[in-house]
């Protein structure tokens, strides 16, 4: 391989950009292992004390648990709604359905601040400010596009004659959907649910707009923690999050890969 100056320039540039993207994320790991009482790199030796603080702090554990159960409900709700939407569109498969699919994806394109402002105005009217339900509802709406993208990908691989065959063999529409369509698109639904959980779990802008004191999620705790104190426990939490996110994303990618891979014949 010839090493032209241009080549070296671009290779260096690529690595620099990659490092710029990844380093801020990775820097939390050494910081979380610090032996000092403030945010900074370890001075004398590595320490797990801040992980220990996290695991024994009721506030942190409470916020973590809140984020987890909200995430689970959001994943379930958005997967149910998104799948129903996709199957409906798939059956229609005309222009209206195509337009509906595009409209469904628009929330991804709208800036989160604008969206949160909209939620805020509307949730005030509905009396949902500072309620868990309000957050769940907002997160479900934010997660829906991700679910529809993933479920639609699974549906496009499905032969339209398959539900027809089920009905021809005696299954009414609902039974045909339950016994034949849902099992076939399950990989897409699971991938969608995982993405929905991630969207909810690390969502911060909406939570800041919609909650005051009663609802405390993990991202909000971190945000407030960094403003009020320099406690390295934040770095410990961040490290746990980075590792968890990597694991869950890897699982989601592996799933969608398995779903799109053709079966051996």
């Amino acid at each position: 391989m010839p090493r032209s100056p241009l080549r070296i320039f671009f290779a260096t540039g690529s690595w620099a950009i990659l490092a710029f993207l990844v380093l801020p994320i990775l820097v939390v790991i050494p910081v979380s292992l610090t032996d000092t009482a403030f945010i900074g790199l370890p001075k004398e030796h590595l320490s797990l004390q801040h992980f220990d603080t996290f695991l024994h702090s009721p506030e942190w554990l409470q916020a973590t648990w809140t984020s987890i159960w909200i995430g689970i409900i959001v994943a379930a709700a958005s997967t149910a709604l998104g799948t129903a939407f996709c199957i409906g569109c798939w059956f229609l498969s005309d222009r209206a359905a195509t337009i509906a699919r595009w409209v469904m994806i628009v929330p991804i394109l709208v800036p989160p601040v604008v969206q949160s402002l909209g939620f805020y105005k509307f949730w005030v009217t509905l009396g949902l400010i500072d309620t868990h339900f309000g957050v769940i509802l907002a997160h479900t709406l934010l997660a829906l596009p991700y679910v529809t993208i993933s479920v639609f990908a699974a549906l496009t691989n499905l032969d339209r004659r398959i539900p027809q065959a089920a009905r021809n063999l005696g299954a009414p529409l609902i039974l045909a959907i339950r016994t034949v369509i849902l099992p076939s698109i399950r990989p897409g639904m699971i991938t969608g649910a995982i993405f929905a959980f991630i969207v909810s779990f690390d969502e911060i802008v909406g939570v800041l707009f919609l909650t005051v004191r009663r609802v405390e999620t993990l991202p909000k705790m971190i945000w407030e923690g960094i403003q009020e104190s320099v406690d390295p426990v934040i770095a410990a939490v961040a490290t746990i999050l980075v590792i968890l996110t990597l694991l869950v994303t890897a699982a989601a990618v592996a799933r969608s890969y398995a779903a799109t891979k053709p079966h051996p014949s």
């Binding site: 032969d159 027809q164 034949v180 079966h263």
Partner: peptide, 8 residues
């Protein structure tokens, strides 16, 4: 046509 067997 194409058999439409249930893949799962």
């Amino acid at each position: 046509q194409g058999y439409a067997l249930f893949p799962t």
